[in-house]
Design a binder for these strands. Sequence first.
DNA 1: CAAGTCACTATCAAAATGATATGAACATGA
DNA 2: TCATGTTCATATCATTTTGATAGTGACTTG
Lengths: 145, 145
Amino acid sequence: MNMKNLSNAFCPIARGLTCVGDAWSMLILRDASLGLMRFDEFRKSLGIAPTILTRRLATLTEEGLLEKRRYSERPPRDEYVLTAAGRDFLPVLVLLGAWGRQYRGEGRLARYVDAETGEEIEPVAVDAVTGAKIGTRPIRVATPE
Amino acid sequence: MNMKNLSNAFCPIARGLTCVGDAWSMLILRDASLGLMRFDEFRKSLGIAPTILTRRLATLTEEGLLEKRRYSERPPRDEYVLTAAGRDFLPVLVLLGAWGRQYRGEGRLARYVDAETGEEIEPVAVDAVTGAKIGTRPIRVATPE
DNA sequence: CAAGTCACTATCAAAATGATATGAACATGA
DNA sequence: TCATGTTCATATCATTTTGATAGTGACTTG
């Protein structure tokens, strides 16, 4: 889709989608959040064509969600590490996963557990102000003047 | 991307992306969550080509996020209303919006406010079990046997 | 020095997108 | 009656993106 007009939109959701609005990018961020860093790790994990992976990694790097880090001078090799923006995208993915579990959870499914307690995570989005679960109260959009 | 293999994957995030893994679908769900229901409302709001809109609405309906409802017999006219699955997708969008605000929030931006209190919403994802903000504790994947 | 690893790039067919025009089934107003 | 408007699309088609496969360059390892 044409992202040019979207990125200037007032809507923060549209803004977000401008840089991470496709499935591959989100899956790369998922894998990066789980510790993958290298081209071939991503390629094998996702079964993605190398052309696409190259492009996606470049975009995510340009957009400031990933950062290239040289881990070998000879031969020159880079790995991709999450920036703060990239790390902060994880909650979106986790919530998407919770939705997927609830509505597309047939058959066997991976679980996300707290690495320390081992207990399964039950992600919910809440309004930090009221503490209310998002979706339980009607939302209105306030457009800027 | 080829969604066929993804949908069978163990990963709930990949499962979620199978049905809502593109920007248009998410923006349609955003608009639907804000009350839009009709073809032309979506078309005008999004500036989307009618071919694409038709296809996306059909997919979202097949996937069970939207439901067609006849609102006029003559001429036959349908509108698209959110199902429970569609409504439950809102938190994902709101969180994506919060990310967009934080990292792509230059210039004027719409705000999401509680329709009753008028107060701005500050969405966060937390683990309902521990109450901890998602991302503050390391996550591990438990693959099914 | 042959084979392997890693991070790509080249090529190209197939699929998706998006702009524009058109259609079908009516309602409305002159 | 008849032109015009509304609404939800479909048809056509050029452009763009995709994805599969093969290849490359700079090494390392046995």
